[in-house]
Simulated scan of single mutants.
Amino acid sequence: MKETAFQEAEEFGFHTADIVQEWMWDDDVSEAIRRNIQRLTGEDLVDEDFDSSVDGVIVWWRDGDDEETLGNTLVDAYSVLGDDGPMWILTPKPGRKGAASSSTIQAAANSVGMNAAMPLTADDDWNAIRLSSFGKGR
């Protein structure tokens, strides 16, 4: 059976040797998504404490997390994202514990000057939403 692009992590827009920073990790995240990103880049994911520029960002966010925290996290993550690399919010799919509405994510993104794309399926339990700065057209 052929795997989809997200199962291979290529859809995220990350490349070999990219440093991808992971925010708001918890024990409920998809280890398959993490493993596929690491396999694609050949690098371990770095956490929020990484203090250098990164090539991409993933943020694990669930309903019930503070929306203001999401906005602050997006500002912090964007500040270390080099050359307009990909930034994604991963959230549980509708019907799963922690599922967040796309309007909540859009509101948080807008509050920090970003747009959120339509959710895409990242795996069986998680959706991925790509963020971009207003006017960047990524």
Rank of each mutant, 00 (worst) to 15 (best):
G71C: 08
R35V: 06
D123Q: 06
F12A: 03
L40N: 09
S133M: 13
I19F: 09
A108R: 06
E68H: 10
A109E: 01
G13S: 02
M24C: 12
G82Y: 03
S132P: 02
D28S: 13
N36F: 02
M87D: 08
Q21E: 08
N72P: 04
R35F: 09
Q7C: 08
N127C: 11
D63V: 10
S53H: 05
F134M: 12
V57K: 06
M114I: 02
A117N: 13
A108G: 01
I89P: 00
D125H: 11
R138Q: 09
L70R: 05
D49G: 13
L131E: 01
T104E: 02
D51H: 14
S101C: 07
Y78V: 15
Q21H: 03
D49W: 07
E11A: 14
S53L: 12
L45I: 10
N115I: 08
S79P: 00
T16M: 15
K97W: 07
P86Q: 03
G135Q: 02
E10T: 13
W126H: 02
A9Q: 06
R62Q: 07
E8R: 15
A32N: 08
E22R: 14
D18A: 04
E48W: 00
G137A: 04
R35W: 07
G56N: 10
G56K: 10
V112W: 00
Y78K: 10
G13K: 09
S102E: 13
D123L: 07
S103C: 13
S79W: 08
T73K: 03
I105L: 04
L74M: 11
I37C: 01
L70V: 14
V59G: 00
D124W: 05
R96T: 08
A9F: 00
P94I: 05
M1I: 14
A108T: 03
D27R: 11
V59C: 05
W61M: 01
S103K: 14
D27N: 12
G137N: 12
N127W: 14
